[in-house]
Amino acid sequence: MASYKELPRTAQIRLVSSHQEVYEPCDDSFALVDALLADRNNLLEHHPTLCMEIGCGSGYVITSLALILGQEASGINYIATDINPHAVKVTRETLEAHGVGAELIVTDIASGLEERLTGLVDVMVVNPPYVPTPEDEVGVHGITSSWAGGENGRSVIDRILPVADRLLSEKGWLYMVTLTANNPSEICNQMRKKGYASKIVVQRSTEEESLHIIKFWRDLDKEVNESDQSASGFIGSLFALGPLLSYWRGTTSKQKQQK
């Protein structure tokens, strides 16, 4: 069994369920799972107890995370939420097709969990609705909720970040997808004020979009603190080019599924 365990498995596209109102796995989903794979050894050494995904969509990411890290025997429990009931149903089907499980809740971000789940989440993954859109498209039902991000694509991201800060444990890690138009360096600075260091785990540019998967962790140790100051500067310079347009209307992988 040991050799089998050493092969990192992720969700298989042919086993991912679908629905016309649910976002299908796309470049951003793949980039997030690639980031989790790239950080797999660290994640395994991290020994998380509770892992959570906010906005689980098709279930591709939470299923992959469960396959990468293991289930109950490994002492890990998974929770996933989505505001779209169709998405949660599809996630359930995708998990079942891969023989893994997660606790699923239809809710807005983590509403209902914020009191009792405070400080308990060791790993959180988020592929937020990051596409810049008019504000009135934010919070619309169905598949729109998977991509409509309001001004600079930040409306939902800026609501998720304080919730993540609240739910993450002392050793908690957050992996989040951002688009250049979201001004990721500003997000990192904002999180630094809450005491988080950050680094880019995966960067991927296509003709359509430039994606960064950023990892955030609480910066408790002073030595880590100093080296991360430079890491933070590094991120700043990487992001220095963007956003060139604060209201960027390019096509993104999320918008491709827009009807």
Binding site: N77, I79, I105, G112, E114, R116
Partner: peptide
């Protein structure tokens, strides 16, 4: 839904 999850859920009204 497991009772673990029930223990983490509150009314959000």
């Amino acid at each position: 839904m497991r009772l673990l999850t029930h223990n983490m859920l509150s009314s959000n009204i």
